Amino acid sequence: MLLVTGATGTVGREVLRRLPEFTAGVPVRVMAREPGRVTGAPVAAEIVRGDFTDPRSLAGVLRGVHRALLLSLPSAGGDACFLRAARMAGVRHVVKLSAAAVVDVGAVDLVTRWQRRSEELLCGSGMAWTLLRPRAFMSNTLSWAGSVRRCGVVRALFGTSLNACVDPRDVAEAAVRALTGEGHEGRAYTLTGPGVLSAVDQTQQLAELLGRVLRFEELGVEQARAALAARYSAEVVQALLESAWRGREGSKCGVDGTVPALLGRPAGDFRGWAADHLGAFGAR
């Protein structure tokens, strides 16, 4: 049996859409804290409630599971609980969504430290493992959608910083292939898009696709901190700002060829992702 966690998240939703192509005849279980929010799961999938911090719920979720996809919030505490339960349940292989920053020696922010610790726990668990290390998701630009619709403005910190951002649909396909295929045990995959873009570049491409003028406004550090504080805890906000500073220094520019090698096709670019999500930005 295969288990998919984090099924209501950005990557999890896309994983569920792709599973039927790769799992004919293989039972699938889907874990979510709120099962009613799960959409797009395979028709025969079993959808169950589970919580990364609740060992009792995990014991039931993991019963009979042989391979699991671990899509969790970046906290080593939750991952540690899940991995202990998975090992006790006899899970043989765990595919974990991590982050590209873990291999950057200059990345010492809290979120990256959490991811490193979670990777260490998995690699030392005795279970087979595969690590997926994506760069920033193209879908992060959806945070601009409200201001684009209202006033044609994109506001972001360090607008000329370059990032080899990745289409989350490519990350999902890589996850499904690692979860269902052979030969991925003990492998760590860095997942990027086909090139590097800045927020200014992305704004220009969105404007072209929407057929309207968009204006980019640079946020100051404290403005960015205030905007992030509406969504995240203070410690996570600080980690995100530290990550942004590293990006300004060029730490996120590396383009990796793993996505096309793993998927057998070119990595998706930002223009293609944006074209498929224009409705969010106000296109009719």
Rank of each mutant, 00 (worst) to 15 (best):
D79C: 12
F82K: 02
L83R: 06
R84A: 15
A85P: 01
A85I: 09
A85C: 13
A86H: 00
R87N: 02
R87A: 14
R87I: 09
A89T: 08
A89E: 05
G90C: 10
G90P: 04
G90N: 09
V91C: 12
R92V: 15
V94A: 06
V94G: 01
V94Q: 00
V94N: 03
V94S: 03
V95R: 03
V95F: 10
K96D: 05
K96P: 00
S98K: 01
S98T: 10
A99G: 07
A99F: 10
A99D: 09
A100S: 12
V102P: 00
V102L: 07
V102C: 07
V102K: 01
V102W: 08
V103W: 07
D104M: 07
A107P: 02
D109I: 11
D109S: 07
L110I: 11
L110Q: 08
T112I: 07
T112Q: 02
R113H: 09
R113V: 15
W114L: 08
W114G: 05
W114K: 09
Q115I: 13
Q115F: 10
R116T: 08
R116C: 10
S118W: 05
S118Q: 08
E119M: 03
E119R: 02
E119N: 07
E120C: 11
E120F: 13
L121I: 14
L122M: 04
L122K: 02
L122Y: 01
L122H: 02
C123S: 10
C123K: 15
S125M: 11
S125C: 13
A128D: 14
T130Y: 08
L131Q: 06
L131G: 01
L132F: 06
L132V: 07
L132Y: 03
R133E: 09
P134L: 08
P134A: 09
